[in-house]
């Protein structure tokens, strides 16, 4: 088991190094950093000075070595607009996004497993058709539209929830509700599909021949087997939330990493953008390690 974790972590580490290389070289390939960082009207002299100051005249490999050293020591430069370390700015925003993602995905996964499993158990029945329809609608509805409609209904017409910002538990309800819909729709369908397969499997037949009750058959025998494809999709959906739900965060004025990235790009705060990419990437790599672990916990055949 420990060897398995080590192997997976190592594999993720290799991709992470690849990512750092890519972030560095891509940022150098998108043009002259001096032109990117400095205002458009900056003089040639100012640009020269900037290059000298930031070592941009050194050979590219020297610059890369320095960048790797900086990343390793956690120094991702200063935010140009906020006069604080870029990493601090990003981590602050990322904490908001992380909580948003964790709460949303926990609710989504729990609800999708119950709804999808029950639909599969009586596949073709009323509940199955009803939940299939709801999930299809959920998976297809655009989130920006849903966000605006939700604000109109709950914040303006009924005036029971705040339109945007943070401060109380109530501020979380609309963003979570809006972010809930699409992954829920997708995961219900994955759960249902996997459960239909698992429930018609031979080992479920054995369980029925043993006289096992319906509840344990669904939630113990079939569900654990059906969870493998579900976990993959949950990870996928969680990754897109961790990347920052840009549109939803912006509409609700939620201070997450998605909103930060958009703001930083508009403000040409380049160090913050790079730091945000790195932080979310590391978070997604860590999550993939967790998903591999979950696989191994669920399926002994992967463990051995």
């Amino acid at each position: 088991m420990l060897r398995f974790i080590r192997q997976r972590a190592l594999a993720s580490l290799i991709s992470l190094i690849g990512l750092i290389v890519m972030v560095f070289f891509l940022s150098r390939m998108t043009g002259d950093p001096a032109a990117l960082f400095l205002p458009v009207e900056a003089s040639a002299e100012m640009k020269d000075q900037f290059r000298e100051l930031h070592g941009l005249n050194d050979p590219i490999l020297v610059q890369f070595a320095r960048y790797v050293g900086d990343v390793a020591t956690g120094d991702l430069g200063q935010s140009l607009r906020k006069a604080r370390p870029a990493l601090d700015v990003v981590l602050e925003a990322f904490t908001w996004t992380l909580w948003l993602a964790i709460i949303t995905m926990t609710l989504v996964t729990g609800a999708a497993i119950v709804v999808g499993s029950l639909g599969a158990f009586r596949s073709g029945g009323f509940f199955d058709r009803f939940s299939s329809m709801i999930s299809l609608v959920g998976a297809s509805v655009p989130d920006f539209w849903l966000a605006i409609v939700a604000i109109v209904i709950f914040s303006i017409n009924f005036a029971i929830l705040p339109t945007s910002g943070t401060g109380s538990v109530l501020h979380w309800i609309l963003p979570i509700a809006v972010l809930f819909v699409r992954p829920f729709g997708i995961i219900v369908q994955v759960v249902r599909g996997a459960m239909v397969g698992a429930l018609s499997s031979a080992y479920v037949k054995t369980a029925r021949a043993k006289g096992v009750k319906s509840g344990p058959i669904i939630f113990i025998h079939a569900l654990r087997n059906a969870m493998l494809p579900v976990i993959t999709v949950v990870g996928d959906q969680a990754a897109s939330l961790l990347n920052g739900a840009v549109v939803v965060e912006t509409i609700f004025g939620f201070p997450g990493v998605g909103k930060l990235m958009i703001d930083s790009i508009l403000q040409r705060d380049f160090n913050v953008v790079l730091a945000a990419i790195l932080v979310t990437a590391i978070a997604i790599f860590l999550m993939n390690v967790l998903i591999d672990l979950a696989y191994a916990l669920l399926d002994p055949r992967i463990r051995h």
């Binding site: 054995t206 006289g211 002994p300």
Partner: peptide, 25 residues
Amino acid sequence: RREVNGRRVAMIFQDPLSHLNPVYS
């Protein structure tokens, strides 16, 4: 009816690999 299965009448199948749940001991 459920109580009959396993207690009064039990069954074994052709392909024991697929008839045993792979994820439980």
